[in-house]
Design a binder for these strands. Sequence first.
DNA 1: GTTTCGCTAGACAGTCTGTATTTCAGAATA
DNA 2: TATTCTGAAATACAGACTGTCTAGCGAAAC
Lengths: 207, 207
Amino acid sequence: MLVMATRKYEQRLRAEAAEETRRRILDALYQRLREAPAEPVSIDRIAQMARVARPTVYLAFGSRAGLFDAAGADLLQRGGFERMLQASAHASAREGLRGGICGVAEMYAANRDVIRVLSSMAQLDAAAVGGAVQRLEQGRASGMAHLAQRLADQGALRPDVTVDQATDLLWLLTSFESFDLLYTGRKLSVDEVARALTTTAEHTLIQ
Amino acid sequence: MLVMATRKYEQRLRAEAAEETRRRILDALYQRLREAPAEPVSIDRIAQMARVARPTVYLAFGSRAGLFDAAGADLLQRGGFERMLQASAHASAREGLRGGICGVAEMYAANRDVIRVLSSMAQLDAAAVGGAVQRLEQGRASGMAHLAQRLADQGALRPDVTVDQATDLLWLLTSFESFDLLYTGRKLSVDEVARALTTTAEHTLIQ
DNA sequence: GTTTCGCTAGACAGTCTGTATTTCAGAATA
DNA sequence: TATTCTGAAATACAGACTGTCTAGCGAAAC
C-alpha cells in the first residue's frame, strides 16, 4: 500500500479497445449528424447510438467541445485535406487553382453534413468546437495567400488585381459556405459547383 | 359570471405599452447579440436586460423560436430590405446588379452580429428561428432569379453564361455568408466588400 | 366603481451538461 | 494461475436552461 511497485504496462489490447471506443463514438456522431443535420445534438443520444454510457464520452473526449473538436481533427486527417493541399500545389499556379477548388469541393461534399454543423457551431459559440475549425480555416487562409502569390509570380494575375484582392476572392470561393450555398442551396452537383467556382475565379483573377 | 357582457375596448395605451414591451425585449436581444455574438443566448438573460420577467417573454413571443423569428421579421422590416430590393430593380439591369450588391452589403453590415446568429442558428436547428430566415432567403432567391433574367433580356449576359448559372452566382455573391467571409473573415470595409463582389459578378457574368 | 389585461413573482416538470463515486470485467503482468 | 491494473458501466448529483402554470398587482378602460 505504502510503497507500490510500479509495473510497466504495454496495454496494447486496452489501448486498442479504448481507441475503438473513441471511433464508435465519433462514428455515432457522424451518423447522427448525417441523418438529422438540422437538429440539436445531445451527448446522451450519441452515447446511446455508440452503445456506450454517457460518462464514457466525457472520459474519452473530456467535454462536449472536445468531442466536436476531435471530430474536426478526424475530418482534417481522413477527409482528404492533404490531397486538397497537394492539388493546389501544382507546379503551374493556374493548374493549382483548378485543382484546389476541385479538391475542396470534393472534400466538402464527402462530409457535408458534419462540416455544416461544425462550421455553424463555431460561428455561434467559439468555445463549443474547440480549435478544430479555426485550425482548418487558418490552413486554408495561408494556403490561399500562397496560391495568390504564386499566381502573381507566374504572371497569371490580371494587371488590375492585387495579390491581396486575389487572396480575398480565393478565400471566399474556397470556403465551405460558398460550396454549400451552391451545393445545398442551389442543388448543384459537386462538379457543377467546382465548375462555377473555378469559372468565377478565372474570369475575375486570371488574365 | 355565466353570461359575460363583452365590452368593446379600445386599449390604446395598453396596446402601446405591450408593443413597447416587445420592443424592449427585441432591443435587449440585439444588444446581447452585439456585445457577445459568439456566446449562447439565454431567455432569462434577455428578460433581465429588458427589465422584464421571464414569462413575459413567452407571453410576448410565444417561445424562444418565436422571439428569434420576430427578430428576423423586424430586421427584414427595418433593416433596409425594401431599399435593397428597390436598388436592384433599377431600369438598367447592370445598374440593378451594382445597386443590389451595395444594398445587401450595407444591410448586412448594419446588423452583422444579429444576422450572423440568426443564420447560424437556422443552419443548426431549423425550428429554432421560426421561418424568418427562410422567408428572407426565399425573397433573395426569387430576386436574384429575376435580376438574372433581366440581365439576359437586356443582352448584358456573356454568351457562354445561362440564366440559371447567373442566378447561381448572384445567389452566392449576395449571400450574407459571402459578405461576412470578406467583412469579418478578411476584415474588409463595407465598400471594399461591395467592390469585390461587384467586380466578381461583372467579370464573370457581364459581357 | 368595476372590469379587464399586461405584467410580475414564484414554483414546477423536464431536459441537458458535466462530475463524482462505486463497481465490474478483462487485459497485463508475474 | 493469481494478482494487479484500468477502461468502462451504472448511478447519482448539482447546476443551467426551457416552457408552463398559478396567483396576484396595478393601471388602463369602461
